[in-house]
Nucleic acid binder design. Structure first.
Lengths: 104, 104
DNA sequence: TTGACTTATGCCGAAAAGGGCATAAACTCT
DNA sequence: AGAGTTTATGCCCTTTTCGGCATAAGTCAA
């Protein structure tokens, strides 16, 4: 949201905030969630770029299609470990994995 | 190990390899382990730089001293999630976290 | 050396995360 | 529209990971 829009909204009586403040997250929780969301997106984008289905990725990482769907959805019931395994199964280097966190 | 040393050893009949090949790890497994080791080291170094004990870090991240010891030991029974929580509790940014992976 | 402090290891029961499976929902192509 | 494919959800049971706790082992200063 740009500054002008924000000022216009605030003038109109709205309270403009971000998800972290709105949900009352600590800085640590916020970072963890941002990292998870970034990983989820990265997995989906990379998988699509490779032109493979969730089922194929699942096989490559010895998991299931259902799990991959949950990974990409950023479901809280999947661990960062599993997300990273997905990234590696897609051929991601440690270098590129690092960038995913940095872009979060 | 530098090239000269390696050649000397091979001439003497030794087989020089790395842990990945020796243990027969896949590329994915190797990357995951390297990432975990790098995280473990990063937690310990950062904690020491902050001059706090394992117990203090444990409290900050709502875990236990025993867990922190296992994190720093790179124990397979601790998840990457927990390691990352430790890094964040130590004040690490997403930017810096990314670098930890890249240096692995 | 002994006593405080810190770190390492092991065990337990509880909670989280995983795979397997079924099936619903969404999307594609003819 | 309907069949085929891909993705999303939910449930169950098993495995993994967790905190809590006790205690061993290591460190260091008095």
């Amino acid at each position: 949201m740009d500054k002008k829009t924000r000022q216009r909204l605030e003038k109109a009586g709205f309270v403009v905030t971000d998800t972290k403040d709105f949900l009352g997250l600590t800085e640590e929780e916020d970072r963890l969630i941002r990292a998870r969301v970034a990983l989820a997106q990265a997995v989906r984008e990379l998988r699509k770029r490779r032109h493979i289905t969730q089922a194929q990725l699942a096989k490559a990482m010895r998991s299931t299609q259902a799990r991959v769907a949950k990974i990409e959805a950023g479901s809280p019931e999947v661990s960062v470990d599993l997300m990273i395994r997905a990234m590696f199964a897609l051929g991601t280097s440690l270098e590129d994995l690092g960038e995913v966190f940095q872009s979060a």
